[in-house]
């Protein structure tokens, strides 16, 4: 989960309410949208994004699906009623003046829709395809090389890699390599030489 909101007191409030529902996931916080949104998404790779709605509309004119994060659930944090056309880019609008039961209900829905609540355990193991990609990553192949080997686009390779990192909680190539060896996806002997990062 990533929270982008300039007000400290609002960020703390959002976190506190989420924690009352059993907070068992990582929360990253950013004060402003000074950096561009796609970069922040890439860096933190959240499943759920809560972002100050006014900043979102002011700073970011991009298109969700073309920006490559159509799978992400976005909730706007707004300080009052929002004009309805503003709601187009977000899945939820969280009005900070709403009463607690309304906010809690919305948060529950966000957690479910983004996959943060409920079925977390089953979805965390990596798929067969992801295992294949992971194997090539561990062997030191580039995204281009992997795309050729598996007859899939580079974009798809990158999506697989993002999902692998999210599911395993491992970000670096050398970390993934260690994981692959521990799980016998590759053998240490295959890695000799240049493949180590």
């Amino acid at each position: 989960m990533l929270i982008i909101e300039p007000s400290f007191i609002v960020r703390e409030g959002v976190k506190t309410l989420f924690s009352q529902m059993g907070l068992a996931y990582r929360v990253d916080e950013v004060e402003t949208l000074r950096d561009n949104l796609p970069r922040l998404i890439e860096k933190f790779n959240p499943q759920l994004l809560l972002v100050n709605q006014e900043q979102l509309f002011r700073q970011w004119a991009g298109n969700r699906s073309s920006a490559g994060f159509s799978g992400l659930i976005i909730a706007g944090i707004c300080y009052g009623e929002m004009a309805s056309h503003h709601g187009a880019h977000v899945d939820f609008s969280l009005n900070i003046h709403s009463p607690k039961p309304v906010i809690m209900q919305q948060m529950q829905e966000m957690l479910q829709k983004s996959g943060l609540a409920g079925t977390a355990n089953e979805s965390e193991s990596i798929s067969e395809r992801e295992t294949e990609v992971l194997r090539f990553v561990a062997l030191g192949l580039t995204n281009n090389e992997i795309s050729e080997k598996l007859y899939i686009s580079v974009h798809t390779v990158m999506t697989h890699r993002k999902n692998i990192t999210r599911k395993l909680g491992i970000k670096t190539v050398s970390g993934l390599t260690v994981y692959a060896i521990l799980n016998k996806i590759v053998e240490a002997g295959e890695l000799k030489g240049s493949s180590r990062e």
Binding site: L168, G169, I170, K171, T172, S174, G175, V178, Y179, L182
Partner: peptide, 8 residues
């Protein structure tokens, strides 16, 4: 890297 090491 530090993050990875912890999770491993």
């Amino acid at each position: 890297k530090l993050f990875d090491l912890k999770n491993i």
